[in-house]
């Protein structure tokens, strides 16, 4: 095997990428209140503590409600937008799609404060509902990107063939298009769920007195004594994200296989 500087660099780079989330469980299971080496010993104690904080439970509930609603809402909106983008030509298409995808690059702070200012101006209270709206805005571009992948892989004549063979427009969508994009829909739901679950800025600005998990975590971070608990909670969140991500990726690949396409790798 030849020595490959690029390969070595790639391995180091991966190590750099994974360093934080690999350290996380190490300290979460470390039997010491100080987050530093050397390690003290193994404990489940910090995880056990998670079960004893009522505020954490309500934050978890908020997060789950927000993440599921966001996932459903942004995937529904994304379905329409992705379908329009791949199937039809309409005036100002580039501008409209670009505008809808804008939250992908806009600094979240800008999105968050502009929403906040409007809500305040309308005299509305920030709540779980307002976070759902904000998160949907943020997740929609991701949903569109994923669903566009599923839609654009479809030959347009598939739908025409179904209609040619006696199906109506809706029948063609139901019998041909939908089965082929279902894996994409599931992947989109999961990804939006993950993003919403982990999102901090918008939740922080719009949560009022109904914190989500990350907002609650942010509060904990100020107290050095709570750091091991932060680590434990972080481990749970990161673990959950990775599991959901693996499931989403499995569905995405299955969708590609079903449509007889090559895997071009990754979301986005």
């Amino acid at each position: 095997m030849r020595f490959r500087p690029l390969g070595v660099f790639a391995v180091f780079y991966l190590a750099f990428l994974y360093a934080p989330i690999l350290l996380l469980p190490i300290f979460a299971f470390n039997d010491g209140t100080v987050i530093a080496f050397p390690l003290r010993g193994f404990t489940f104690g910090w995880f056990a503590q998670l079960g004893e904080i009522p505020a954490l439970h309500s934050a978890t509930l908020n997060s789950l409600i927000i993440a599921s609603s966001t996932a459903v809402l942004s995937t529904c909106l994304g379905l329409f937008a992705a379908r329009a983008a791949t199937r039809y030509r309409f005036p100002l298409k580039g501008g409209i799609m670009g505008f809808i995808m804008l939250p992908l690059v806009l600094p979240e702070v800008i999105v968050a404060i502009s929403l906040l200012v409007v809500l305040m101006q309308l005299g509305l209270n920030t709540s779980v509902f307002t976070i759902i709206l904000g998160h949907t805005l943020l997740c929609m571009p991701f949903a569109i990107a994923i669903l566009q992948g599923s839609f654009s892989g479809l030959d347009q004549s598939l739908e025409e063939a179904a209609m040619d063979l006696g199906e109506t427009r809706s029948g063609a969508f139901r019998l041909v298009i939908l089965p082929l994009v279902v894996p994409g829909i599931i992947a989109s739901l999961l990804i939006c769920f993950i993003i919403s679950l982990d999102e901090f800025i918008i939740a922080f600005f719009l949560s009022g007195n109904e914190p989500t998990l990350p907002v609650y975590l942010w509060g904990l971070m100020r107290f050095p004594a709570q750091l091991p608990v932060v680590m434990a909670l972080g481990t749970v969140l990161v673990g959950l994200s990775i599991v959901l991500l693996l499931v989403a990726n499995w569905f995405r690949k299955r969708g590609l296989r079903k449509a007889g396409q090559e895997d071009t790798g990754g979301f986005l």
């Binding site: 004549s157 040619d164 082929l180 449509a259």
Partner: peptide
Amino acid sequence: PTNMVFQSYAIFPH
């Protein structure tokens, strides 16, 4: 009363 053979054949992949 017409049916079509498409250029891409449009065989339903699923």
